[in-house]
Design a protein around this nucleic acid. Sequence first.
DNA 1: ACACTTTCTCTACCGTACGAACAAACTTTC
DNA 2: GAAAGTTTGTTCGTACGGTAGAGAAAGTGT
Lengths: 405, 405
Amino acid sequence: MRALHSGLALRLIWRERLVSRADLARRTGMSRSSMSAIVEDLLATGLVRETGTGDSSGGRRPILLGFQDDAHAICGVDLGATHVAVALTDLRIGVKAWRSEAHPVRDDPEGALDLMCRLVQEVLTEAGVSAQRLVGIGVAVPSPVSPADPESLSPLLVPRWRGHSPVRRLQAAFGVSAVMDNDANLGALAEQWWGAGQDGRDLAYVKIGTGVGAGLIIQGDIHRGATGVAGEIGHIPVDPAAGPCVCGLRGCLNLTVGSQALVDRVRNLRKTDERSVLPSRGLTVGRIVEGAFEGDALARSVIETAAGHLAIAVAALVNLLNPATIVFGGGLTRAGEMLLRPLRAHLGGRSPSASVTQTALAISSLGVEGIARGAATLVLRAALDDPNVFPSLRGAGTAVPSVTP
Amino acid sequence: MRALHSGLALRLIWRERLVSRADLARRTGMSRSSMSAIVEDLLATGLVRETGTGDSSGGRRPILLGFQDDAHAICGVDLGATHVAVALTDLRIGVKAWRSEAHPVRDDPEGALDLMCRLVQEVLTEAGVSAQRLVGIGVAVPSPVSPADPESLSPLLVPRWRGHSPVRRLQAAFGVSAVMDNDANLGALAEQWWGAGQDGRDLAYVKIGTGVGAGLIIQGDIHRGATGVAGEIGHIPVDPAAGPCVCGLRGCLNLTVGSQALVDRVRNLRKTDERSVLPSRGLTVGRIVEGAFEGDALARSVIETAAGHLAIAVAALVNLLNPATIVFGGGLTRAGEMLLRPLRAHLGGRSPSASVTQTALAISSLGVEGIARGAATLVLRAALDDPNVFPSLRGAGTAVPSVTP
DNA sequence: ACACTTTCTCTACCGTACGAACAAACTTTC
DNA sequence: GAAAGTTTGTTCGTACGGTAGAGAAAGTGT
């Protein structure tokens, strides 16, 4: 129970950045004397420090306590479909070192794992942090992760990864705890903690890349579903005219707004549209968005069509989950309002009354580091929930008696 | 903190039905001596009683503790679109008295509230329970309930109810606490606690009635969404051929499998199908299902078509939320496997790989009392979470210091 | 200079949980 | 059937964590 109250105090100090002992006592409902004792413990761990005094409100000036963001480090790994990126962050998920390299991750697990370990070592070296000072390593993978087997990627989507586990590899290489989750889930977590979804307990993050995936934050927690595949928005049917999908369906969202689909559509329309400035070869989603910004009608029309298809799936999301915010990430979202405006318009006619008008739509502002920071956030959240996992507190005590069903 | 451990013990006793002190100590991780003290307190409240001894496992026989299901009563109210039903239950949500009457609830709030209070009084009298012995009253309403205003019905869907609140009315009339939630949500809660969804933390309940609504249990809790309208599955578009909906969309699920739609479809097809045994007048969903059981081809075909439309919306539900179980309730579900079989077939081709094959589909087995029992469960759950709300413990002490953000 | 506030610490006290010892009741073993 | 071993439940001394209240420190306002 001291662990309980001490953790409570630690979380408050983390959140409030600067608070006095008296403030903490009021906020938690405890007495000032007890809080003083707890703070004494926390000061000894090095996670909290006294940082000057605050303003008086008619009496003695309070001694302000601050969380030591640099007391430890966290590593976040973004294992994408075609790249590996690693961020070393402090305890507020500020990026201290960053590495990113292209790699065919799906087809070459061993190479990807080697690259990952090399990059982790590089960011540790660059930041001058030893592995012992890591709270842990979080990994985002482009695959569902089953709660029943949280160390493996889904063999159904990435068959070559059978038997390979980023988690086990990192634990073996660096001797620290590692956790793993789907990339869209961690994108959602990043948005909730550091992006557009702050101060909301229900949020959806839609990642538009090679395919389309959604991460769901429900009641403040990542929702993984019974088998870990929640958020499979990419296989909602949106266009019967489109071809068959690997999943057995026709016209999946993946087939109409995935990177390849956008490029193909531009290429097809390009044949009959002589005025477009877009090239036929070496076309990427980035080039299409650029073209749209330069006023190219073809590019704009393709983006608008994609928004229409996206709206159908997003409407289902809004109707079923009623999130406070939906954040969009991925290459196409650099189109900004060119994507959001038609999306809102289509959505307005696709959802009853209150639910959609009160849903905030936003483009992710976290950039390429978003997913990796989400992975690091997973580690941070676990540590704030149970401060025992901070290296400086390791083995301090047991947890609270739980329900144990 | 004694409240914490005492509540923990109480929940365990409730769940396990018969446990010894030593068992409780092992389960909670506490010492036997502490548990003895806690049990002594619990015995004094009357909620727990010693009920004989259990079998020996090589030593002294344990004294078994049992939860007193009859120590208090709970009232569950089902305010449907066209009826008012009230159940009086014990602390395991077993129905002790039941009343149900037809009433145009949507159009006559005052009459419905009067009827509700009369029925509550009747079940109290029949069961010989005074209002003081009630833990509380739970109410299910055919409307979303906003977390921002948990005492009112959504004025958008049931405009006449503006200013009327079942919760306030019950509190005034019986002097006990009352809580309210959407009927589909409470159907889902009932299924999770007493029906097909037991031992799962993710469950969806789909209610097919006048319209179609879904209640979602996520991570063991009712998911209400940011504005309380989560689960609006009825406005997912499933058939572009169907007409426009009040929501502005075309071909909403509500328009294709709602009671009226089924009746209308049968009536239209009836004109060209002379062999059908179904009547043209006085047709109800119940009659259609009966006809199907008697082998009527027209009835069967209409049910199969409905299953196809339902599958599209359910596929979206499965893809997005990946629940362990989906339970179906409402009149149409009396068709049983005639509905589920085509639903499974359509679903197989509508969802990628693992998610759908591992989702259990089932028909609700709770019958007409399901929603009311769900409403009562809402009260029970609150009481088990914080035993202070049990009348015999009222005002016993304050809660644990919370986070207080 | 004075009274009043607010913060933080120190000490006496109290409730709660634990461990150890013990009694009770039962099974197994010889 | 007596002895030995188990399991349950209680009793009692102890320790820890928390509170309340007094007091010191450090400020504000008149």
